[in-house]
């Protein structure tokens, strides 16, 4: 059995707070970039069967834009910043005063989206590092526009070795009337949970 199945409710609450702090800071960063208020939902923390992970962003074949970073350091893991195509285009129109075509992405647009993901993930991780006093270092972000299943399965490999589900900290954020919607997925490696809990003073049963 996957040892994470046994996580006590209060430990899940601790992870929710981790998502809250991280994504809260990222939402603030996005709000500054856009100069508009950005709301976020209370994070959900759950052990999700692989088959259902992509459902959160519209299903296995849904085309999404994903910025992926590998978190290295004391508590390694994978991080995804995922938005749908409409949101990505709106984000680009808002941020870059340039003509954005409806179909496809130019080099410049790719690069801008990668940079946005980098800023947001960076603020997520640095607030998390401050909070836990863990050393967390993101790799250079990689960006892909592809099927959600193909993208997310890449972040699940570490879980594959020990079961058929993954623990995911998911935070959705929304930007007012424009309904820009995105997700932050933090998927700590299975071994990282003990480190996160002990860094936060959560007793080990």
């Amino acid at each position: 059995m996957n040892p994470l199945n046994k996580l006590a409710a209060f430990k899940l609450d601790v992870l929710k707070e981790v998502g809250n702090i991280g994504a809260g800071n990222a939402a603030t960063a996005l709000s500054r970039l856009l100069d508009k208020p950005v709301d976020m939902n209370v994070p959900t923390v759950s052990l999700i069967p692989f088959e259902q992970v992509a459902d959160k962003v519209g299903g296995f074949e849904q085309v999404v834009i994903a910025v992926f970073l590998r978190v290295e350091g004391d508590a390694p893991g994978n991080m995804f910043f995922i938005i749908d195509e409409d949101s990505a285009k709106r984000l680009l129109r808002n941020l870059l005063s340039m003509d954005v075509q409806d179909e496809g992405y130019s080099e410049m647009e790719y690069s801008a989206l990668g940079e946005i993901g980098n800023i947001l993930a960076g603020s997520y991780l640095s607030s998390l590092a401050d909070f836990t006093h863990l050393y967390l270092s993101p790799t250079v972000p990689a960006i892909a526009v592809d099927m959600a299943g193909a993208i997310l399965s890449y972040g699940l490999v570490h879980y594959g070795e020990m079961g058929d589900s993954a623990l995911l900290i998911d935070t959705t954020f929304l930007e007012g009337q424009e309904e820009l919607a995105g997700h932050f997925f933090l998927i700590p490696d299975p071994e990282s949970f003990d480190k996160i809990f002990s860094a936060l003073g959560v007793p080990n049963e």
């Binding site: 992926f68 590998r70 790799t139 892909a144 592809d146 193909a150 890449y154």
Partner: peptide, 16 residues
């Protein structure tokens, strides 16, 4: 068997 994201790390996991 795609390499969804290109990284320069030699990590075996990334070459899955």
């Amino acid at each position: 068997g795609a390499q969804m994201f290109a990284f320069n790390t030699g990590s075996e996991t990334m070459r899955i």
